[in-house]
Computed example of a mutant assay.
Amino acid sequence: METIDKAADLANEAYDKIASTTHQAVETLGEKGEQLINAEQHLMKNCRGYVRDNPITSVLITAAVSFVLGRLSSRC
């Protein structure tokens, strides 16, 4: 009976450690997700501002990138 009790205690300790680690991972992922969302919003705000301030340059950059991507995709 003592062996079963020790095994049960070890199993409970392992379960508690796994649950704690999982909880910490979920919290970390949640924080990183929020940081990524904030970074995306900041980047989009900056991009909109650049396009608004430099419309001709933005159109030329878009055309150049489209041309290069078109050339690359036609080779495949």
Rank of each mutant, 00 (worst) to 15 (best):
V26R: 09
Y50A: 01
D53Q: 14
A14K: 03
R52F: 06
S20I: 02
G49Y: 00
E40I: 02
A63C: 14
A25I: 10
D53E: 14
L72V: 11
T21G: 12
S66T: 14
K32A: 12
I18W: 00
F67P: 05
G33A: 09
K17P: 00
I56P: 00
A39V: 01
I56T: 14
A11I: 03
E34C: 05
Q41A: 11
T62Y: 15
A19T: 02
H42Y: 05
R48T: 04
E34V: 06
E31C: 08
E31Q: 09
Q41S: 13
E34F: 02
Q35M: 07
N46C: 06
A63Q: 14
E2N: 08
A7G: 06
L72A: 10
T62S: 15
M1H: 07
H23D: 14
A11K: 04
R75W: 03
Y50K: 05
V59E: 15
K32R: 08
L10C: 11
L29P: 00
Y50P: 00
S58Q: 00
T62V: 15
R75D: 06
G33Y: 03
L29A: 13
Y15F: 01
I37L: 05
K45N: 07
T3G: 11
C47S: 06
T21V: 08
S73E: 08
Q35W: 01
T22A: 13
E31H: 09
H42L: 10
E40D: 11
I37E: 07
S73R: 09
V65K: 13
A19L: 02
A25Q: 12
M44S: 08
A11F: 01
E27A: 14
E34Q: 10
K45R: 04
G30L: 03
S66A: 15
D9Q: 13
T22F: 03
R75E: 10
G33V: 02
R48D: 06
E2W: 06
L60T: 14
G30I: 02
P55L: 01
A39Y: 01
S20P: 00
L29K: 12
E31V: 12
N12T: 07
D9Y: 06
K6V: 12
V59K: 14
N38H: 04
A14G: 02
K6S: 09
K6A: 11
K45A: 12
N38Y: 01
V59S: 15
I56K: 13
K17R: 06
N12S: 11
I18M: 04
S74M: 05
K45D: 06
M1E: 11
E13N: 06
I4S: 12
Q24H: 11
L60Y: 13
E31G: 08
T28R: 13
E2Y: 04
H23L: 14
S20A: 12
L36F: 02
L36T: 03
Q41T: 07
S20E: 06
S20W: 00
E13A: 12
T28C: 08
V26D: 11
E40S: 07
E27V: 13
N12W: 04
L43F: 07
C76K: 11
K32T: 09
G33S: 08
E40T: 05
E34R: 09
R52A: 14
L10G: 08
Q41P: 00
I61G: 01
K6I: 12
R71V: 13
C47F: 05
N12H: 09
D16F: 01
I18K: 02
K6Y: 09
